[in-house]
Design a protein around this nucleic acid. Sequence first.
RNA 1: GCCCCCAUCGUCUAGAGGCCUAGGACGCCACCCUUUCAAGGUGGAGAUCAGGGGUUCGAAUCCCCUUGGGGGCACCA
Length: 504
Amino acid sequence: MTTDRVRIAPSPTGPLHIGTARTALFNFLHARHTGGVFVLRLEDTDVARSTLEYENDILEGLHWLGLRWDEGPEVAGEEARGPFGPYRQMQRLELYAAAASQLLANDQAYPCYCRPEELEAVRKEQEAAKLPPRYNGRCARLTPDERAAFESEGRKAALRFRVGEGVVGWDDIVRGRVEIDVANIGGDFVIVRADGTPLYHFVVVVDDAAMNMTLIIRGEDHISNTPKHILLFRALGHDVPTFAHLPLILNADRTKMSKRKTQTALADYRAEGFIREGLVNYLALLGWSTGTEDEILSIDELIERFDIHEVNKAGAVFDRARLEWLNGQWIRRLDADDLVDRLRPFIQAELDAGRIDRMPSDEEVRALLPIVQERLPRLGVIGELVGFLWIDQLDVDPERLVPKRWDAATTAEALAAARATIADVGEVSYEADELEPPLRSLAEVRGWKAGDLFMAIRVAVTGRTATPPLFDTLVALGYERTLERLDRALQTLASAPAASAPGT
RNA sequence: GCCCCCAUCGUCUAGAGGCCUAGGACGCCACCCUUUCAAGGUGGAGAUCAGGGGUUCGAAUCCCCUUGGGGGCACCA
C-alpha cells in the first residue's frame, strides 16, 4: 500500500464551501485509510479577496467536521505543524520568486508587456471570430531591444510560461487515461502578475512540488488545468504527482453547485443543526459508495472502507432531503449527554431570537430526550418541536382550539372536564401513566372520541396540532402550567364570538 | 467557438458478459402501529440501463457513432 501525501488547499476568498469540504474529506479519508499524510495549505495569493474571517471559517469548519490535518499552518493557539512550512502561500513568496527566476533563466518563461486592455481587445476579436480565446504570443520572441523599449515606456512585465507543443497525458485514478493537446490550453499563460505576485497555476505546482505531494485529489473542474500543471512540474524538474479528479457536486439542474442555486456554506448547514456525523456521512456518499448496501457509516468506518479507486465519474446532485434523513439517523444515535450539549446552543438561539422566554436546565432538556430525539431531523427544529414549553404566556387562536369534528361549546365543555380531571390527579402523582387512564375514561363516559379530547387538550396547552405524545408533554409542562393554560384556553373560548352554534 | 469529461428509477447509487423479468437507499403513495406528529414495520408506484449500430451463443456491462448534459478556456482560485 502506498503512503501518499495528499492535501486540501482552500482559498480564503469565501466561507467553507460544501464542495471544498467534500474534497477535503476524500483527501482525509484516503490519507487515513492508507496511512498517508494529510496536508492543509492556504492559497491566499488573491490578496484582494482573501480575508482572515474566511480563513477562520474554513479552518474552523474543517476542524468541526473532524478532518484533522497532519501538516498545516499555525492557527489560533496552535503552532504550525510539518516540515514543509510555512503553509500560507503569502509567506512563501520567496519560493515562487526563486522558481520564477529559474524558469526565466532557462527561457521556459518570458516577460510579457501586454497591457490588460490590449489582451482584452485580442480576446474580443477572437470571440467575434468564433475562435477559442488564446494568447497570441506577441511577447514570446521579443529581442532585448524590444524589451528595453517597453521598459522605457514604463511598462511592467508579467511573466508567461512557454507552453510549447505536444500532447500531455496522465493516468487519472478516477478517469483513467486523459490526454490533452497543448495547443488547446490557451497559449502561454501568466504565472506572475505585473505587480510581482504569483498566480494560482504556478503557486499550486511550486508548492505541491516543494511539499512533496504524491497524489492530487481535487474537483473535476481542474481537469482542463492539469496539463498546465504537468508542464510546470516538468519545467521545475519535479516528479509529476498522480491525479484523481472527483465528480462535481451539482445543483438540482445538474450545473456545478453554486450558492445562487443551493445553500453552499457549511456554516449555514451547521447553523440549521446538521451534525458532523450526518454531514460527513452524506458527503462521503456523494461520488463514492461501499459497493454494498451499507450506507450509515461513521467517520471511522469510512476511513476503514474508503477507496479512492472506487470513486465514480458522474456528477452528483446535492439532495437535501437525503441529507436530512441521514442527519436524523445520526441524531438518533447520539447519547443523551452529548445530545443535551449539542442542543443547548440551538435553544439559546431560540431565546436570543425571542421565540422563547427562558432557558431550560440541562436536566429539563435531558428529561425531554425520549420524546424528542427521534423527532429531530436537525437540531434546529427543537424550538418548533417543544418551544411552547419555554414560553411564559401562550396565546391560542380560538378557532384552532376546536377539533375538526367538534364545535366551540363541546370543546369548552371537554376542556373544563379535562381540567377538573387533571386537577384531580393532583400534583404528586402527576405522571404520564397516571394522566392517561382517567382522561380516557372521561372521554368514554362522555361519549367523546379520545382522539378529539386529546387534540383539544393538545392545542390548548401547546398551541399546536402536532406535538410529541400528549401525556409526556403535559408532564414536561408541569402541573401548574398545564392547569393555567387550560384555564386560559377556556377564557379564550368564552370571550370569542360564538362562531358555530352547537349542532350546526 | 475550441478542448476535455460524463450518461442505470425524480435523487444518491449497486452492477466490472450470463446470478438482472436491473438490487438498495432517500423522496413519494398505501397499509400496520397509533391520542396528533415522528420513529418503526409491511407493501407499492417508479429505470424499454440516453438513442443507434456493432462484437458475442449471450451486453446495463466491450467497441463505434449520434444525442444530451456538464466542466474548462483570466495578470480568479
